[in-house]
Design a protein around this nucleic acid. Structure first.
Lengths: 328, 328
DNA sequence: TTGAAAGCGATACCAT
DNA sequence: ATGGTATCGCTTTCAA
């Protein structure tokens, strides 16, 4: 910028005015400055600008894994809202590791992002964010609630969704329904299990412990759990899967049995309609989650001073065939 | 930092030393400084640090749509390599709009990212990047080659892959094979069409223009093209799809016919094995693309001075059933 | 309309 | 071992 000023034979501030489209420059000098700018290939250094202005026009997004379609859809929505507000987006994957979540969040804060959208890693304690929040960095938690801090939150109605999905199976005549879920220390997994239990209880149905399996989303564990639930004199006739990865693992394993088993999965799959039968799901709205969270964030940045808001988005049952199979 | 220095009763530079773990501080004073830091909730301002040091330890990634599983897998790989090199990642989706691509890339550059990984939008002219490249911002193009600039590139062997996929169908006895692809101004689409044509020519098979359709990836267009190719006295018996979105649209439409049609798709689908029959694909390696591109980028940042490198990753045929159906 | 000088929060260099 | 001071590139303030 100094160089541009020198070359155009004007003061530093005049260049600044031209670069930022501020008034108070004759079109004559503006032109000279523009010429110098393109001659030198000058580009304003936003780091310096940020340092001076305070606001960085950037947002940090910490999630579990950007490669997961659920989170990538969410990410896109956050990006879109950010763009409308003139902000750029940092993204980082925590891999469900609280330490990495913290490193990422703090690294973003050190870059002085204006705000943070965080999908909490299982077991993470968010008190580490207290100094940043006090320093004015707006923070919204998404998909799961934070621990040890009060902040805006956007969640899916997990329990209600699981309840609806399970009730759907019960409505089709199933009485023995397995629940295959994620690790119980993940909030969403626990909530979905709760919904399942509620639906069973509502229908006066007992739940055999052997029908329930929670744990890491490995094909081995899911496969073994499925085999257990399908064995014995009174095997389950239906299956409720706690998330998309479990659903896929279960479907793969299910093909090795030649018994028809009804399936309802939590989370939609992109091509669920192409399977035979089509996969019935309780669909979340990842884009809706991302959009809503980003809107809450920018509301804060625009000065909304109220207490923390806690929003919940409904999950939607989409019948496609697999959840409508009768018991055998 | 000033405040910390005051509270600890030391000089500014000493605080800087402690914060950065530099030697030359007695553990005694270091402790006092640490105490002041946590008392004040101090966090170093990386914007200022960046301004001074030159390197920002951040990378910008511009792609078509982070919500697309292909790109989100790629993004994750770039992120992983960046993390190993201590860099944070900006992501932005261009939506295949050259103008947005430019805005994003320049915005990242204005933030002084150390490097840029770009999936060029169709038709984008990359001469706009010349000043940035001259200013030393390392740039790697991925998935598609850039226009009007010489830089490191990582591509999939699109033509070879399409050729192999088409040859696979020919090997199964098909002689009339449709090609449904993306817009011809997208480099990958054009390359894949070329591979298809080569395979047909190699086998001495004619190609009827009505078998080929290029254009936007809308279900309507794909469906109509498919209907055309499947009509008339000599309908195609097999189908080569130019990308995952086309494949999905085609599979959906195909279900409305009750004729078995062999299908090979370019790009893997996450649950391709769960379809019936399983979907045969020519799979790219999105994570490999991302990883390789990021590695080239950091090689540059670590001082590699050589001429631009152009790498090509192979595509891999994965037979799963749909591509092994015989002609009818 | 224009520009000189101060300052944003850190680091680098050179004294002490 | 410690600290003062110039500096990074820009915006802000105020005077011309």
């Amino acid at each position: 910028m100094k160089d541009v000023a020198a070359r155009a034979g004007v003061g530093l501030k005049t260049v600044s005015r031209v670069v930022n489209g501020e008034p108070g420059v004759t079109s004559d000098t503006a032109e000279r400055v523009q010429a110098a700018i393109s001659a030198l290939g000058f580009r304003r250094n936003d780091s310096a600008r940020i340092l001076r202005k305070g606001r960085t026009a950037s947002v940090g997004l910490v999630l579990e894994d950007i490669a997961d379609p659920f989170y990538s859809a969410l990410s896109r929505a956050v990006e879109e809202v950010s763009r409308l507000h003139g902000s750029l987006l940092f993204t980082g994957s925590s891999d469900e590791d609280p330490e990495r979540e913290e490193q990422l969040a703090l690294a973003f804060c050190a870059r002085r992002v204006d705000g943070l959208v965080i999908v909490p890693a299982a077991g993470a304690d968010h008190r580490y964010l207290a100094p940043e929040v006090r320093a004015g960095i707006a923070t919204v938690f998404i998909d799961r609630p934070p621990l040890g801090i009060e902040a805006d939150t956007v969640l899916t109605a997990n329990a209600a969704g699981a309840r609806e999905g399970t009730a759907h199976l019960i409505g089709r005549g199933h009485r023995r329904i397995a629940f295959l879920g994620d690790s119980p220390d993940i909030h969403t997994a626990a909530e979905r299990l709760r919904g399942y239990r509620e639906a069973m209880a509502d229908a006066g149905l007992p739940v055999d412990p052997s029908w329930i399996s929670l744990g890491p989303t490995s094909p081995e564990r899911v496969g073994a759990a499925l085999a257990t639930a399908l064995s014995g004199p009174e095997p389950v006739t239906a299956l409720f899967c706690g998330n998309n990865r479990v659903t896929v693992a279960a479907l793969r394993r299910l093909r090795t049995f030649d018994r028809p088993v009804a399936v309802v999965g939590f989370d939609d799959l992109e091509f669920a309609d192409l399977l035979s039968p089509g996969l019935t799901v309780v669909a979340q709205d990842p884009a809706g989650l991302g959009r809503t969270a980003a809107q809450l964030l920018f509301a804060r940045l625009d000065g909304y001073p109220g207490p923390a808001r806690h929003l919940e988005l409904p999950a939607r049952l989409i019948p496609r065939g697999s959840g409508e199979l009768p018991p055998t």
